[in-house]
Amino acid sequence: MSSMLKPFLNSVISIITNDGRHIVGHLRGFDQQTNLIVENCHERVYSMENGVEMAPLGLYVVRGDNVALVGDVDEELDQKLDLSAVRAKGLGPIQW
């Protein structure tokens, strides 16, 4: 069952959505369908020209059907990342 997400509760998670967006925030709740409640979240926007841009989003409910991956963020590791130096294309969408 989707209680696989239970250890991630109240920690910072990294969500990759089916349309290729990358959202980071605190996981406050989830259900069987992988619907997620994410608090204090922001989107990380990647580009080849500039570093990663952080777009604040606030409190989100992400619909499970649109969730590809949920990662447990190691906050210490994350703070050490120099996101302003990262150059990458955005992720592609999920395509069958």
Partner: peptide
């Protein structure tokens, strides 16, 4: 190419 997961050790894949 995919630096998005650099601070992730454990993950859930749908």
């Amino acid at each position: 190419k995919y630096p998005h997961m650099k601070s992730v050790r454990d993950c859930f894949v749908r």
